[in-house]
Computed example of a mutant assay.
Amino acid sequence: MSLNFSQATVLVAGDVMLDRYWFGDTARISPEAPVPVVHVAKVRTTAGGAANVAVNIANLGARTSLISAIGRDAAGEDLTEILETARVNCHFLRADDFQTIIKLRLLARGQQVVRADFEKRPEREMLLPLSDLFTKQSAGHAVIVFSDYGKGGLTHLVSMMEHARRQNKVVLVDPKGSDYSAYRGATLLTPNRDEFAQVTGSWSNEEELERKAFSLCEHLELKALLVTRSEEGMSLFVEGRHVRIHAEAREVYDVSGAGDTVIGTLAVALASGYTLEDAAFLANRAAGVVVGKVGTAPILLEELERAIA
């Protein structure tokens, strides 16, 4: 089946990061400490966080712009180069006193041994220009995605949300934390199972899950809620209905970045005129592809076409 998303326009704002992967083998324990010695044979660098959302969108053939903050450092340059190669229009606030976020993962024999995070939370005042950037860029995009990783990049989200609602934009949010009040009025939230439970509490059956989901939709004035449930697939709550979508993955290797693929695919589909339900089914297929890959790896258009064929 052929898909054409070339007319879709999506603006992404949120926390960007650089994902580095060191791959190698291990055959002995260090004499210095009881840890494995890994001989690194391959290094891979990819876009992470909101940057990965934007790459997913661009890979599907849509036009996308990205707003975020990065440091004036080597990691920021590497991330910008990756994004420009992927045809993402970058609108970055570059700051001398800010460190581009890096997540470094060391893998041996296909298993993650350790992850090291390099990050420094930005000052609130430093990020004020992002609101102006958002106001300038939002007019030319049909759908807005806020990718919140809790790193501070969406410090001024409330004012951005207000502006997006005044423009009657479709607003998708990948949320973080236990307080969702800043996301009030969004079109769709996409928490995973654990994130949703953190906000609403656990549930013992589907009826209780539905009550919690519809209550949250009403409280936050959401049009819909999509809860990704890992091996249980997805649950879309829209217009008083609970739509169950079964998991598609044949083999789950790595769930890193799957949420980015879900919200990116949703955004492209909605910007192309899909209904929320059809967009969710498409996003589920896309997620089923990327969890079969190693590390943060975005969807490709031809992979999605094969998945729905």
Rank of each mutant, 00 (worst) to 15 (best):
283 A>N: 06
251 E>K: 13
285 R>T: 00
262 V>K: 09
257 G>D: 14
271 A>E: 09
250 R>N: 04
245 I>S: 05
240 G>C: 13
241 R>K: 15
265 T>P: 05
269 A>R: 05
247 A>H: 02
273 G>S: 03
268 V>N: 10
266 L>F: 08
240 G>E: 12
267 A>I: 12
264 G>F: 10
239 E>I: 00
266 L>C: 12
257 G>P: 14
253 Y>T: 01
245 I>A: 07
248 E>A: 15
248 E>I: 07
248 E>R: 15
282 L>Y: 08
285 R>C: 09
263 I>H: 04
245 I>W: 01
268 V>M: 10
277 E>N: 03
273 G>E: 03
279 A>F: 05
267 A>M: 12
248 E>P: 00
261 T>I: 09
270 L>R: 03
255 V>A: 14
258 A>H: 07
242 H>Y: 09
266 L>Y: 06
288 G>E: 00
272 S>K: 03
245 I>Q: 08
251 E>M: 13
244 R>D: 12
260 D>V: 10
245 I>T: 05
258 A>P: 11
287 A>Q: 12
262 V>P: 10
282 L>N: 04
266 L>T: 08
262 V>M: 07
259 G>Y: 03
254 D>K: 02
267 A>P: 12
266 L>R: 08
284 N>R: 04
273 G>D: 01
288 G>I: 00
252 V>Y: 07
254 D>R: 02
261 T>M: 08
242 H>G: 01
270 L>V: 07
275 T>F: 10
289 V>H: 01
252 V>T: 13
253 Y>C: 02
258 A>K: 11
277 E>C: 01
247 A>T: 13
250 R>M: 03
272 S>F: 05
256 S>F: 00
240 G>Y: 14
264 G>H: 11
285 R>N: 06
276 L>R: 05
279 A>V: 06
274 Y>L: 04
